[in-house]
Write a protein that binds this DNA or RNA. Structure first.
Lengths: 200, 200
DNA sequence: CTTGTCTATGCAACGAGTTGCATAGAAAGC
DNA sequence: GCTTTCTATGCAACTCGTTGCATAGACAAG
């Protein structure tokens, strides 16, 4: 279970409540993992039961009390053990790629809007990552010599930036392909079923 | 549920049994999705019950009989409906990125082997994709004018190629970072717990 | 003064995905 | 003769992940 390890890393970087973790996972520049607050609360409870985490009730005023979690020694040991285990290179699950191949059996032009939406979302993320990089690592307000943790966060962020740039370029390629197919529209695989293609 | 849609696309491209689907999902050059045979059999059964697929028992000699699935009209319609729905841009879940950030609380040098292993795996995949591209799309044995389905498969494959190239370059960046941190080893975040760092 | 948003936590139910095991005939290698 | 590998399907049990709902006080906008 990698969520467990992601939580350990995040809590080592900075202790916090389930709510705060959920927001970090949502909005963190390093955005290397996603999880809903439900999942996080459930895993936090389990990890606390197993002694991996320590909890501290923090009373607050003007807002509900919170439970601040931090990593206990067994949690640190568990993380260390995981770091020394080999893991499998991840396998992609890319919905949009499924849609692109699926559009061979539908109207290619109909996918253009969707691809453009995705492209815009990836441009947003890229801008967000670049702003974060400037703020935390390469700008004038960044700490002068970065420590090891910051260097590692930076290299992960560079990965995110490279990913977004690559994806945007690929989506441009996809759009060009869809436009080309749109012009010579009629060589779409003939639908055998309920949705006959209007022959322009 | 995107597995359902991936199965529809794959069966439209070519009908086949659960076993064959599992192998396609495993080894397909387009490798856009992963699933175990268990999951595939279960979903195939459900989709058949729902009338999305048609089955044909195919007796074979020298090997067990198989059930060849193909897409029925309602399945085609379901795919078409899904293609016209917007989907969210996928969110990454990158174990290795978690490990990289986690190594701030451990020995950075210990991760080098792991990262090299991943790099090698991505190089293999890239070689595999490039071979497939040459065979199916750009080489002398490829069909001369590609039809729409092939163009779309090609652009998805180009995405896979771009992803692997980007990843390999990023892993080189990661390795360089880890080596740099290895030389100035002692500014690792001081462990507070059970694993004291050996000061080189 | 009502609606909506933000902080903060959680239950219940469901769906997605994994792991281990079982069956069973054919072929290939040791 | 034995083990392993390949084809082919499936059950059972489990964990992981999502969705909908509930609570509850504080604050801001209309």
């Amino acid at each position: 279970m990698a969520l467990e390890h992601a939580i350990l890393v995040s809590l080592l970087e900075k202790p916090g409540s389930g709510y705060e973790l959920a927001r970090r996972f949502d909005r963190s520049i390093g955005r290397f993992w996603t999880a809903t607050h439900q999942q996080i609360y459930r895993v936090l409870n389990r990890m606390e039961r197993e002694g991996l985490l320590a909890v501290r009730e923090v009373p607050q005023q003007g807002r509900p009390d919170k439970k601040e979690y931090s990593v206990a020694d067994p949690g640190r040991a568990a993380l260390s053990r995981w770091l020394h285990e080999p893991i499998e290179p991840e396998s992609l699950r890319h919905d949009l790629a499924v849609k692109i191949r699926g559009t061979a059996f539908d109207d290619p032009a109909a996918l253009i809007g969707e691809v453009e939406r995705h492209r815009a979302a990836h441009c947003d993320r890229l801008a967000h990552y670049l702003a974060g990089e400037l703020r935390d690592f390469t700008g004038p307000d960044a700490p002068a010599p970065l420590d090891a943790g910051q260097e590692l966060q930076h290299v992960v962020l560079r990965g995110g930036i490279a990913y977004e740039r690559m994806t945007i370029a690929w989506l441009d390629d996809v759009l060009a392909t869809l436009h080309t197919l749109g012009t010579k529209a009629s060589d779409v695989a003939a639908p055998q079923g309920s949705t006959p293609a209007p022959s322009a």
